[in-house]
Structure formats: structure tokens, C-alpha cells
């Protein structure tokens, strides 16, 4: 089965870049434009892995992670944070919220694809 990736980012450019990389690599790619959209899309798409931005309108990335990791429908799919920040503070916050990993923008296609494949245990 094709691996489904949900990317939550308010930047169209980043979404486009991710789409290009990941669709080329054979992932089924879905996007959401902000945190609230992301949570809604998550339920809809049921992705195998989530990539989320931190700085977003409506709900930030921490909010997304906390929401997805809590409640009766909490998920255990890997959630990667994709952001330009790399400060320990922010990283700790993301980790405490339940993030699986951290990717600093700009990302490198090959490593991202490789990480996603391994995270999802899928050669897709």
C-alpha cells in the first residue's frame, strides 16, 4: 500500500517542495494549510506519517502534535517537525508534545525520503 504523508505547512512553497520530493518518491501526498486544517485532514486522510511546521496560523505545530497525540483517538504515527528553528527550547517543546523527530528547513530530498521510508517501514 502506498505510504500516505500529510504535510501541514502554511507556506505554499514548502508544500510544493515537499509535494515534488515526496510524490516523485512514490508517496501519496496530502497537505493542510494550518494547524486546524491539519488536524481535520489527519482524520480524513489517515496518513502514515505527518510532517508539520511550527509557526502556523490558527493552531501552531505544538498544538497539532498535542492534539494528535491526545484524546481517545490519539495516534502513534510518526510526527516530524519541519521548521527553520533549531533552538533547544523549541525542540524540547516539540518533543514533550510528542514529536517523533525534527527536520530543519531547508531539507534535503534524499534524506527526507529515506527517513520517511524507514519511519513508515515501507519501501514506497
Amino acid at each position: 500500500m502506498t505510504t500516505k504523508v500529510l504535510a501541514i505547512d502554511d507556506s505554499r512553497t514548502i508544500r510544493n517542495l515537499l509535494r515534488m520530493s515526496l510524490e516523485n518518491a512514490g508517496f501519496e501526498f496530502h497537505t493542510a494549510v494550518d494547524g486546524v486544517d491539519g488536524v481535520a485532514r489527519f482524520a480524513e486522510v489517515q496518513p502514515d506519517v505527518v510532517i508539520t511546521d511550527i509557526n502556523m496560523p490558527n493552531m501552531d505545530g505544538y498544538g497539532v502534535i498535542e492534539t494528535l497525540r491526545s484524546g481517545p483517538r490519539k495516534t502513534s504515527v510518526p510526527i516530524l517537525v519541519l521548521t527553520t528553528e533549531s533552538s533547544d527550547d523549541l525542540k524540547t517543546r516539540a518533543r514533550d508534545a510528542g514529536a517523533t523527530g525534527w527536520i530543519v528547513k531547508p531539507f534535503d530530498d534524499a534524506s527526507l525520503v529515506s527517513v520517511l521510508r524507514r519511519l513508515t517501514g515501507n519501501a514506497a
Binding site: K4, E28, T31, A32, Q46, S76
Partner: peptide, 24 residues
Amino acid sequence: DPDPIAAEAPAASAGKTHEKEVRG
């Protein structure tokens, strides 16, 4: 199980990629 939610409902949109840009 990597995704308990996924197990609860059939993956209706599998194999079909579509971007939803209708928030805001």
C-alpha cells in the same frame, strides 16, 4: 499498530492524491 485510527476506517482516499486548500 502504527496507526490505530487508520485501522478503524477504510482508507477511502487511498491511491488518490488531492490537496485541500479551502481553509481561511
